[in-house]
Design a binder for these strands. Structure first.
Lengths: 243, 243
DNA sequence: TATTGAACATCACGTAACGTGTTGTTTTAT
DNA sequence: ATAAAACAACACGTTACGTGATGTTCAATA
């Protein structure tokens, strides 16, 4: 028999938590002293350990209560559900990470806080992956989309920065004469980074390009927007580069 | 000027939320009708959009309030912190995913719910990655640890299942005669899966094995425990297989 | 055995970001 | 003018406890 204090020390759970678990009937001490002090038996301790294990898994106390009095089948179902939830949450966080990174780049390269861009980035990444893919569906199939997303994830920090810089430099100079040398340089740098990004898969790059031209507004592809796409088209026309 | 209802429809934010944001002073309508109804100006809408963008980033309303009246430098710092947090959270979820998967396999292959094993798995994965790596430090360096973790992540569902089954079959028969044919078969199957797992990197497998022998208790490596390690050692001695 | 300090029980309020519901008032459409 | 819709303001509920406050019981010591 353990008092609440010793049990607390042994398990690392606070007294208040044990008090609370008693209150909601999750882990009740099986006996008390004549004076009313809680006494936990070995069985109670076991129950507590199970509760803690389920808590690590991320279940709510209500759910834990339900699970602990259900059958093996329900168990597998609950844990499977939790597993799926964890996977979805990871997907969400991956998107969020990219969005935050994008915002950081935008602040860094624009050297100011551009709210319209930040809002666009957040809206862009806030949608479900499914919706995101659908936007590009006109010119690319699912496998190609997956390739693009994948190659983005395997890019090094350094390469991502170079790519971002290439795009942001175009944004900064998007109103210069498309026939100028600087315009050509910027476009060529962009093309170089884009090819590097897609591992020189010209087919993939071509399809992406067609898709980009079709999209109307917003953050089209990473930091690229309509202005950048149009700039590249103008330079291409002026110098006869690209399809 | 928008009433609370129209603003709610336009942004998808509930009336109660706008009410609440007004109450805590996060987004206050800049004017009211003579009767006291809220009227939001374009500036108010902009403020709301910024708040929402920051909310998507995962900041608390308190933090958002603080961020919205701070300088650019603090911004970068806050977003960087948030980015780091998101990364850490992803690490945590990755561990949790593996733990849940482990629990599912244990229920599936043992065909019952084994609480001691579940508790062990959860304790094992509940520690920080740093601590986890330290447990194996005696025989492996960091790079090798990283390799092992990596190869585990790149394994297919199918391969993981095969590996799990190999280990669980040993657990089931861990008391049979080490000299028997079945024992040899089980050990050979284990070895085959282990080699496949490490892409036939004998050096790495050898070091892992040394490390496993040194560890005293608990869920040593995935579903492997001390019993499995000892079984493999006994079979090895009996048949002269492995180092 | 009396005392005293530590441990304990019980209660109450606070947390974050709203959802839900009630009551009474204002606006809008007819 | 009237009825319906929209609105303001308030209150209580939610999770899993943390942080006290107050009064009681236990264990060790004098």
């Amino acid at each position: 028999m353990y008092t609440i204090g010793t049990l607390s020390k042994n398990t690392g759970v606070t007294r208040r938590t044990l008090d609370y678990y008693d209150e909601i009937g999750l882990v009740k001490p099986s006996s008390r002293t004549s004076g009313g002090h809680r006494l936990y038996s070995e069985d109670d301790v076991m129950r507590l350990e199970r509760v803690l294990a389920l808590k690590y898994m991320g279940f709510s106390l209500d759910k834990i209560n339900a699970i602990l009095q259900s059958s093996k089948l329900n168990w597998q179902e609950s844990i499977q559900e939790q597993l799926d939830m964890v996977k979805r949450e990871q997907e969400r966080l991956k998107m969020l990470e990219q969005a935050l990174q994008g915002v950081l780049y935008s602040i860094e390269f624009e050297e100011k806080i551009s709210w319209p861009i930040i809002s666009l980035i957040m809206k862009f990444y806030h949608q479900e992956p499914e919706e995101l893919i659908q936007q590009y569906n006109h010119f690319m199939n699912e496998e190609e989309m997956r390739k693009i997303i994948e190659c983005n994830e395997t890019m090094s920090e350094e390469d991502i920065r170079e790519w971002m810089k290439a795009v942001y430099d175009i944004k900064k100079h998007q109103d210069i004469d498309p026939h100028s040398d600087l315009a050509l340089q910027l476009a060529e740098r962009w093309l170089k980074q884009a090819e590097k990004m897609f591992d020189h898969d010209e087919q993939l790059l071509g399809n992406l390009w067609e898709s980009l031209k079709g999209l109307e507004e917003g953050v089209v592809f990473y930091p690229m927007d309509k202005g950048v796409v149009e700039f590249l088209q103008k330079v291409s026309k002026a110098h006869g580069e690209m399809g």
